[in-house]
Computed example of a mutant assay.
Amino acid sequence: MGVAYSVGEVDHLYTFFAQWSPEVCHKGDNQWKPHYVIKDKNQNHILVVEKDIAAINKILSKPINTAAKKWEIITAKDSKRRQSLCSSDDSEAEEPSYHDVLPVLSDHSNLLDDHHLEKLAAHMPARTYGYQWQLVYSTAVHGSSLKTLYRNMAEVDSPVLLVVKDMHKKVFGAFSSDPFRVSKYCYGTGETFLFSFNPDFQVYKWSGVNSYFVSGNWNSLQLGGGGSGFALWLDADLYRGSSFSSPTFHNAPLSTNEDFIVQDLEVWTVQN
């Protein structure tokens, strides 16, 4: 028989790894080692972790028994072939991968279609799976104001997806582990990534070089830094922006030009 862990323990363990704990996550050659998934079949808890079981056992009250039937440790790639318990005969049947299920949007998006959602879903962290995405800000609805964007996120404590469409019809943006806010210092975790459709999809994950994920003030919002410019920069009117290669993500410029004009902008947040 396997051992059961409380939701609190699962959340605590997830938070531990989401913050890139140095006890478990080790960096080498600016790349992270292959991740593994701990999966509770009964509760559908999924945790992306390193394979250092000793470090994991320090966090949980009951050590992980890798031979237990209730828990499996599998590669993130193999997690796409999730198994579920059949209610009729307790036999295991193939279950669609969360990566294969499109995120559900609460409202119509002017910028995202099924193609965009399908590509982005494959790179979303496990903690966002199965939850509905709510539109928290849109230039089409709320006007063009960074101040309004911050105000709409005052009560948000979930990850956010920023989507921009420039005057050249190019769609790009960022997934941020933390909601956007005014802060004196940079914030966010290594879950944060950039993306663009050109029209081919490109994703830029954290390089590990620095932790300049997100910073914001009343005059601008910035993602990625440490180089000659920000990976993504937006002004107070959410009208002008710029995108440069940055050490944080080792990204190419997201827009057609390094300086661009915003046509539409949306921010979505996952409600959990």
Rank of each mutant, 00 (worst) to 15 (best):
G190A: 12
D178H: 14
K170N: 07
V182A: 10
S176F: 07
D200R: 03
K170C: 07
F180D: 08
E191Y: 11
S211R: 09
T189A: 11
N198V: 06
Q202M: 12
G188A: 05
A174Y: 05
Q202P: 00
S177L: 01
K205T: 12
G188I: 03
F197M: 14
Y187H: 08
P199C: 02
F175T: 07
D200W: 00
G173T: 07
F197L: 12
G208Y: 09
Y204S: 06
T192S: 15
F197R: 01
D178N: 14
V182N: 10
W206S: 00
G188W: 00
K170Y: 00
D200M: 07
D200V: 04
V171G: 03
F195T: 08
Y187S: 02
G208E: 09
V209P: 01
F193R: 12
P179Y: 09
V203W: 13
W206Q: 09
V163F: 01
S196H: 03
L194T: 04
P179D: 11
G208I: 06
K165E: 00
Y187E: 06
V164M: 02
S196W: 02
P199H: 09
K170I: 11
V171Q: 05
L194K: 01
V171E: 02
V164P: 10
C186N: 12
T189W: 04
V203C: 07
V203K: 15
K170G: 05
C186Q: 11
K205S: 05
F197S: 13
S196G: 08
V209F: 08
T192M: 07
K205M: 12
V203Y: 13
H168T: 13
D178Q: 14
S207G: 06
F197K: 02
F172T: 03
V209A: 13
Y185S: 13
K205A: 02
Y204K: 13
N198S: 15
Q202F: 06
T189R: 14
V203I: 15
P179L: 11
G188R: 00
Y185C: 06
D200G: 04
D200A: 15
E191Q: 09
Y185D: 15
S183G: 09
D166Q: 01
M167R: 01
V209Q: 11
S176R: 05
K169V: 07
H168G: 07
H168S: 15
V203G: 01
G173Q: 06
F201R: 03
R181H: 14
S196M: 08
G173S: 11
P179K: 05
F197E: 13
V163T: 13
K170E: 03
V203F: 13
D178T: 12
S183M: 01
F197N: 08
K184P: 03
F175D: 02
V182M: 13
